[in-house]
Design a protein around this nucleic acid. Structure first.
Length: 576
RNA sequence: CGGGACGUAGCGCAGCCUGGUAGCGCACUUGCCUUGGGAGCAAGGGGUCGCCGGUUCAAGUCCGGCCGUCCCGACCA
C-alpha cells in the first residue's frame, strides 16, 4: 500500500504549453513524466510503475513463447556496425562518439549486430537452435524530430527479441510464435490493434509486420480490406497495375507547347488548362545514392518514395532541391516533364493509361499537351510507384479498402541471413556443412505502448488505464483527514486490500475531496473506494468505476470482497 | 534540414506595437475557516524578463547574432 502523502505524483490543473497530444498532456498532468530535453524524459514513480507493468507483460509473454532474457550494452563499438555495413548506412539517428583512446562507439538504437556477434561465438550446431534472445533496454535514436512525449522520444525503453534458426521453415515458425505472442501482449493491455504489412526500412530483411494501435492521433496511415484480412501501412500497400493495356495514343496529334505562366502545382495547371488532374503526368526529380531519377505518376496520385527507394535498391532517397532540378531539367521545379529529358526515368503504372497527357516542358512557364507515353518518351520501367489512394481496391481480393490511422507499437521482421552473412554467423548442419543462421527480430516500444494506451483510453477527466497497466489498481479516498473514524476505516480497508495482493494508493493527503477525486480521475486508477461521513455513519462506503462512473454503495464489512471482485472482473477484460 | 511560432516566478499567461524601477491566476509558506468534485479570508516567500552584443540618459520593450522549445514535412519502436 502506498500513501499519497509520502508519494511523488505531482498533478497539475493546467497543461504545459508544449504538450499538444492527449497522451503527452495527460501523462504530464498526472505527474508521471517530466521532460529533461527534447525527446528525453524523467519517469516519475507512477509513470515508472506503468512502464514496469508493460514490461512484466512483455516478459511473461516472451518467456511463454520460449524466448530467453538477456541484457546487451547500450554502448557498442563501431567495428560491429562496420561489419554489417550499417555504420555508414544508418545515418544521423545513430549517435556516435569516441572514448579517451579515440575509438569510435555508438549508443545502440537496435541490437542486431550485438546479438549476432554473441550468437556467432556461441552457436555452432543446428542442435543449438532454435534460440530466441530478448532484452528490455534503453535505446537511443537521435530522431530528426522527437515529438508527442513518450510517443517518439530519442531515449526510450524497447523490448527487442532476436530469433535464430537453422533454416527458413524454422525461422517462419519462430516468426509465427512471436506474432502470436504480440497479439496476446496487446490484448492483455486492452488495446485495439491491427497487424499490417510494412516496409522493412533500415532494419532490412525480407518481410515484416507492424502492430498498429488504432488511434486518430497516430502518425501512420494504414489501409485494411473490408473483405479479406489484408492490411498494410500505406507506404507498403501494393497497388496492382490497372487492367487496361498501354494507350495507343491514336488520334492524338504531336505534343504541343502551351504557355502556363506561374502554374506549378497539379491543381494550378489542371485548372488553367481545364483538364482533369488524371490527365497530367506529374514528374518528380529525386536524388539518391544510386543516382538521380525522374519519377512519373498520374496527377491524381502521389509518389510513394519508399517504393522508389526499394526499386532503386537505394540506401537513401530524397526530393531534389530546386537548384538540382533546374540543373537536370533546365527549368524551375513545377515545369519538369519526361519529353526530351536525358536522365533515368521511372513511371508508375498510372501513367501508362494516359492517352493524351499534359506535362512540364522543361522550360519556365511552359507545359506540353497531347503527350503520349511510349511515343513521346519511354521510361526505363513501369512499376508500382504510387501511394495507395481513396477508391483503390484490395490488391488481394479486390474489395474496397478502408483507411485509418495507427500508432506503431511493435514491429516484427523476417531478417533472413542479412546479418548472419555479414557477420559470418554460421553453424554446421546435420550433414556437417556450414550454413548461415536464419534470423528474425521483434521490437516493442515500452513507453510508446503506454502512451498509445492513453490515446485509446481517456475521457474529459483524464486517463482511463486498462487495469493490467494501471499504476495502481485501486485508490482509497477518505474525504476528510480530520475525521478520525473515517481515516481509521479507510486505512483498515486499504491494508486489507493490500494484504490480498491488490495494488492500493491511499489518498491520505489533507486535501479537500474535490482535489482527491479530480486527481484520482486524472491518474486513471480503475477503481476508487470512497469513505465519506454520511455513508460511514450508516456503515457504508462507495466503490466507483473510473471507466463507467458507476458507483456502488457497499457495507464496510463487505468492501474488501466487493473490491477484490471488481478488480478480478477488470482483469478478465484484459485477458489474452 | 526546410517552413511556422514561442521563450517574462514551479505551471499557465499579460506587459513589448508607443522604451521610464516587473504584473495577474494557479501552485507554495503561515494563520483562521472549511470538508462529497480543483472552496473562502488574511499575511508572506519566490523573477540574472533564454544568452551575448548593439542603439539610447534609460531596454522585458527597439536592432543583430546565438541557444532552447513546440508545431507542419522527410525517419522509426
Amino acid at each position: 500500500m502506498i500513501r499519497y502523502s509520502s508519494y511523488l505524483m505531482p498533478t497539475t490543473k493546467e497543461t504545459p504549453s508544449d504538450a499538444e497530444v492527449t497522451s503527452h498532456r495527460l501523462m504530464l498532468r498526472a505527474g508521471m513524466i517530466r521532460k529533461v530535453a527534447s525527446g528525453i524524459y524523467n519517469y516519475l514513480p507512477a509513470g515508472l510503475r506503468v512502464l514496469r507493468k508493460v514490461e512484466r507483460i512483455l516478459r511473461e509473454e516472451m518467456d511463454r513463447a520460449g524466448a530467453l532474457e538477456v541484457l546487451f550494452p547500450c554502448v557498442i563499438p563501431s567495428e560491429l556496425w562496420r561489419e554489417s555495413g550499417r555504420w555508414d548506412a544508418y545515418g544521423k539517428e545513430l549517435l556516435r562518439f569516441k572514448d579517451r583512446a579515440d575509438r569510435e562507439f555508438c549508443l545502440g538504437p537496435t541490437h542486431e549486430e550485438v546479438v549476432t556477434d554473441l550468437v556467432r561465438r556461441e552457436i555452432r550446431s543446428y542442435r543449438q537452435m532454435p534460440v530466441n534472445l530478448y532484452q528490455i533496454q534503453d535505446k537511443f535514436r537521435d530522431e530528426i524530430r522527437p515529438r508527442f512525449g513518450l510517443m517518439r522520444g530519442r531515449e526510450f525503453f524497447m523490448k527487442d527479441a532476436y530469433s535464430f534458426d537453422a533454416d527458413e521453415s524454422g525461422a517462419a515458425e519462430s516468426y509465427r510464435r512471436m506474432y502470436e505472442a504480440y497479439c496476446r501482449i496487446f490484448r492483455r493491455m486492452g488495446l485495439s490493434f491491427r497487424a499490417v504489412e510494412a516496409d522493412t526500412g533500415a532494419i532490412g530483411g525480407s518481410s515484416s509486420h507492424e502492430f498498429m494501435v488504432i488511434a486518430d492521433s497516430g502518425e501512420d496511415a494504414i489501409v485494411s480490406c473490408e473483405a479479406c484480412d489484408y492490411a498494410a501501412n500505406v507506404e507498403k500497400a501494393e497497388v496492382p497495375p490497372p487492367a487496361f493495356s498501354e494507350a495507343s495514343g491514336g488520334g492524338a496529334s504531336e505534343p504541343r507547347k502551351v504557355s502556363t505562366p506561374g502554374k506549378r502545382t497539379i491543381e494550378e495547371v489542371a485548372g488553367f488548362l481545364g483538364i482533369d488532374p488524371g490527365a497530367l503526368i506529374k514528374t518528380l526529380v529525386f536524388e539518391s545514392d544510386k543516382g538521380d531519377v525522374a519519377v512519373l505518376v498520374s496527377g491524381r496520385y502521389e509518389v510513394n518514395e519508399v517504393k522508389v527507394k526499394n526499386l532503386l535498391a537505394a540506401d537513401w532517397i530524397r526530393l531534389a532541391p530546386e537548384e538540382r532540378v533546374r540543373f537536370l531539367t533546365g527549368a524551375p521545379s513545377g515545369f519538369a516533364g519526361p519529353v526530351g529529358l536525358s536522365m533515368k526515368i521511372l513511371a508508375d503504372h498510372s501513367v501508362k493509361g494516359i492517352a493524351a497527357g499534359a506535362t512540364g516542358a522543361n522550360e519556365k512557364d511552359a507545359h506540353l499537351v497531347d503527350v503520349v507515353p511510349g511515343r513521346d518518351f519511354a521510361p526505363e520501367a513501369y512499376a508500382d510507384l504510387r501511394l495507395v489512394a481513396e477508391g483503390d481496391s484490395c490488391p488481394r481480393c479486390g474489395a474496397p479498402l478502408r483507411f485509418s490511422r495507427g500508432i506503431e507499437v511493435g514491429h516484427v521482421f523476417r531478417l533472413g541471413t542479412k546479418y548472419s552473412k555479414a557477420l559470418s554467423a554460421t553453424y554446421l548442419d546435420a550433414a556437417g556443412k556450414e550454413q548461415p543462421v536464419v534470423m528474425g527480430c521483434y521490437g516493442i516500444g515500452v513507453g510508446r505502448t503506454a502512451a498509445a494506451a492513453v490515446e485509446q483510453h481517456n475521457d474529459a477527466d483524464g486517463i482511463v488505464w486498462p487495469i493490467s497497466i494501471a499504476p495502481f489498481e485501486v485508490t482509497v479516498v477518505p474525504v476528510n483527514m480530520k475525521h478520525e473514524g473515517l481515516v481509521r476505516e479507510a486505512v483498515r480497508a486499504a491494508e486489507e486490500l493490500s494484504g490480498r495482493g491488490i495494488e492500493v494508493l491511499l489518498d491520505d493527503r489533507d486535501e479537500r475531496p474535490g482535489i482527491k477525486f479530480k486527481d484520482a480521475d486524472l491518474c486513471g486508477i480503475p477503481i476508487r473506494v470512497t469513505f465519506g461521513e454520511k455513508n460511514l455513519a450508516a456503515g457504508f462506503a462507495e466503490i466507483r468505476d473510473r471507466k463507467t462512473g458507476v458507483t456502488e454503495r457497499v457495507e464496510i464489512s463487505r468492501i474488501p470482497d466487493a473490491v477484490a471482485a471488481a478488480v478480478e472482473a477488470k482483469k478478465r477484460e484484459c485477458s489474452p
